[in-house]
């Protein structure tokens, strides 16, 4: 683990403002990014290439720009599991659904309901549901209906402050949300409605994060949850039990975080992503002097900071995401307006 390194393989330039999020298509052939410039850019590689040699010999290029839809910052993007549609969440209080038709990306639906800024959107694994969250402190669940209609099936109150992130469990039976109230909430479906099955943190020191939770992610098998925060720590939550009934599987997380990783970061950790190799990439705030895209490894619970890339970007790293097929490829984006691709060696 000690000789890992991250090598810069591509600079994707074009956004005119800070880049908030990146998302790989499910097959990994496309990368979408969204920005304060109110556009989404979709990036492609000529060979669809995921091998390092191809990365260096051929350039990634911008194959589509999705614009003139949102009137304010586009904060977050999510691919549908079949890779044919894209959801965009904007500070303009709407979520737009886009589909590729005849080689052109077209907006096919709009999800209206949030009072103000929408901060995150996530498609569930079977593509039937979309979760959204925002500054109005609520989590919304939308169901995809025939004819590209989306119907709101549930609005969940529970967070006391704005909700920064929603992510689905890989099994699809569980939704996790987190945000400005320092807590993480797990939501599950009881056959009738979605209810909060557990709240992580918020019960005083030691129970969880002590400041805003910016991002959460599951490990690939869906047994553990990682979270990162303005309190400069990454926490790993272990699942205590998985109760399987005939209709639902309930995951319960242990009483407190199993592991707290601290001391590696001096600025807010905005994003993290758990790769199929077991490494967690973290992106954090930092000035022109140091931004890292570090990795934590979890073999035999020996946690540590394995790679540190100072100056990875000339500004806060807002999002980091591992490639879904090639585990050595990582995408990052930043306030410096760049999307960068890294190769783990």
């Amino acid at each position: 683990m000690d000789n890992l390194s991250l090598e810069l393989v591509a600079n994707l330039t074009g956004h005119q403002d800070r880049v908030w999020s990146v998302a790989w298509s499910p097959k990994g052939d496309l990368l979408a990014s969204c920005s304060g410039d109110k556009t989404v850019r979709i990036w492609q590689h000529p060979a669809g290439g995921v091998q390092q040699q191809q990365q260096q010999q051929q350039q990634w290029y911008c194959c589509a720009i999705l614009d003139q839809c949102h009137s304010r910052t586009i904060r977050n993007i999510a691919w549908s599991p079949n890779g044919r549609a894209l959801a965009t969440a904007s500070f303009d209080a709407t979520v737009a659904i886009w589909e590729l038709s005849g080689g052109v990306w077209e907006q096919v639906a709009e999800l209206e309901g949030h009072e103000n800024e929408v901060k995150c959107t996530a498609w569930n694994p079977d593509g039937r549901l979309i979760a959204t969250c925002g500054r109005d402190r609520s989590v919304w669940i939308w169901e995809s209906m025939p004819g590209r209609e989306f119907e709101c099936v549930d609005v969940k109150q529970g967070h006391t402050q704005d909700v920064k992130v929603v992510r689905w469990h890989p099994g699809g039976e569980l939704l996790v949300s987190a945000g400005y109230d320092d807590t993480i909430k797990l939501w599950s479906y009881d056959g009738d409605e979605w209810g909060c099955s557990q709240t992580l943190g918020g019960y005083g020191p030691g129970s969880g994060h002590s400041s805003t939770v910016w991002d959460v992610c599951w490990d690939p098998p869906g047994q553990r949850l990682a979270s990162c925060s303005d309190d400069l720590t990454v926490k790993i939550w272990g699942s205590r039990s998985r109760m399987k009934t005939t209709t639902t599987t309930t995951t319960t997380i242990g009483g407190g975080p199993a592991v707290t990783l601290s001391g590696h970061h001096t600025r807010t950790i905005f994003s993290l992503d758990w790769g199929s190799h077991g490494l967690i990439a973290t992106g954090r705030g930092g000035g022109g002097w140091g931004v890292e895209g570090g990795c934590y490894g979890g073999a035999q619970e020996s946690w540590g900071l394995w790679v540190r890339v100072e100056g990875a970007h000339d500004g806060d790293v807002n999002c980091v995401r591992w490639h879904p097929v090639e585990p050595r490829l990582l995408a990052s984006c930043s306030d410096d307006g760049l999307v960068r691709l890294w190769w783990l060696k």
């Binding site: 304010r72 904060r75 901060k119 704005d162 400005y180 303005d230």
Partner: peptide, 15 residues
């Protein structure tokens, strides 16, 4: 202090 340190809230406020 928490509000002033939250870059997302600051960005939204300035829009």
């Amino acid at each position: 202090n928490k509000q002033l340190a939250d870059k997302e809230r600051v960005a939204a406020a300035l829009e």
